[in-house]
Amino acid sequence: MTDAARDTIYILLWGDLVDTVRGLASVDRIKAAHRRARIILLTSPDYEALLKHCPHFTGVETDALAEGPAGRLMVKRIKISKPVAVYDLVGGPIARKIKGGLRFMKTRWIDGRPAEAGGHPIDTAAATLGRAGLGPDRYELGAAPGPDIAWIDYLARSSRMLEPEYFGINDAFALLAPAGDEVKPPLRWPKERWATLASQLLDAGIIPAVVGGPSAREVGRFIAEVTPGARDLTGKAKLVQLAGLGRKARFVFGEDTGLLHLLVAAGPPALALYPDGEGDPAYRAPRGASPVVIMHAPTLAQVTPEEAMQAMRYAGGFDRAPRAA
């Protein structure tokens, strides 16, 4: 697929952090097919601070969810830009409104949404794009490349705020990403387990750094209080900083959270915890460049820190250096 130098292409991508990170795998595929095009991301403000650093985008527009006059101006602006193609990675009424505004133009509308069932969203989204001419139209489970945010390295070279030393971490470290208090206790790993794991990591010469939003602060504070040497970064690091830390972490361990998907996309090996009874976790687990070990149990408390340590060793987190230069 070739493009004129000034062709404009829009990518529609918004939603929660999981949807956004998964969508970046499709963005990689689209950019590879349109290397010379001017690619504009239409999204919401939620993750602008992270996405504006992605080199695949010529520009990032954040009024996707605008309503009333602002919403009409958004559609008009897209129409004036005369895009040769729009890649819809989200669907829904807003996408339909934009499509309707372009109905008399020669813009190619390409559905890149993942299938609702029948596979992992990254695999099914890649297959959907394949049917539009961007690669194979079928992928086995795990075959489609996952999102890769290695481009965060370029920002890290000019901002020490993305460096582990900025957070007081000067040696090998792992990122622990517990779920916040918005998740029901039976679906969370007990904080005592987290603290024991942190202690075992320190004994192995790896600094445990607890990350997450404000809702995870209770777990972060508990770990730091009972495990001297652990770092509590909950509520203290922005997403772009966490992506930078993920590039240099030995491995990541967490429950099924949006943040875990971002950290895995940064490249380290990972261990993901899932409770039973919610379907096969292989069809929703995070994807990245390194192995992701999935552990599940009827209740997460049944998983022991010793089992978690063994799984991390199996994933290679104890014997490999960080991916970032």
Rank of each mutant, 00 (worst) to 15 (best):
P298F: 15
L263R: 08
D3F: 07
L197K: 05
R22C: 06
M74Y: 06
Y139R: 01
G133I: 05
S44L: 06
A237H: 05
P281Q: 12
V84D: 13
A289H: 04
V75R: 12
V21G: 01
G130H: 02
V219T: 14
V211R: 12
R29K: 09
F253K: 01
P275Y: 00
W151L: 00
R6I: 05
L271H: 04
G100V: 10
A85Y: 08
P208L: 13
A297I: 02
F57V: 01
A297H: 13
R217S: 15
F57I: 02
G112F: 06
G118E: 15
A49W: 04
K236R: 15
I39D: 11
L176G: 04
D171K: 08
R323D: 10
R103I: 14
K99I: 05
F173L: 00
V219S: 05
F57L: 02
A4Q: 06
L50G: 08
L134W: 14
E307S: 12
D7K: 05
A150F: 15
L73I: 07
F57R: 00
E48I: 09
R72I: 11
M295A: 12
E48T: 09
A216G: 07
A85E: 14
P145D: 14
E218L: 10
P186K: 03
A177E: 09
D28F: 08
A127D: 03
P269H: 13
D256H: 15
G279N: 05
R157I: 09
V84I: 15
M105L: 15
I78K: 05
L245T: 02
P190Y: 13
E67W: 01
E116L: 08
K184L: 10
A156D: 05
K248C: 03
K52L: 11
I122T: 12
G15Y: 07
I80M: 15
V90N: 06
L13Y: 04
L201H: 02
L17E: 08
R103M: 13
C54S: 12
G254P: 01
A174Y: 06
G254A: 14
K31A: 15
L162T: 01
A150K: 08
L12K: 02
Y314F: 07
Q310C: 03
L187T: 00
D203K: 14
A5N: 04
Q200E: 15
I122H: 06
P228S: 01
A301Y: 14
L259G: 02
L13W: 04
A115F: 00
P93M: 13
D148P: 03
S159Y: 13
G267V: 05
L202Y: 06
R188M: 08
P228T: 04
A237Q: 05
A321Y: 04
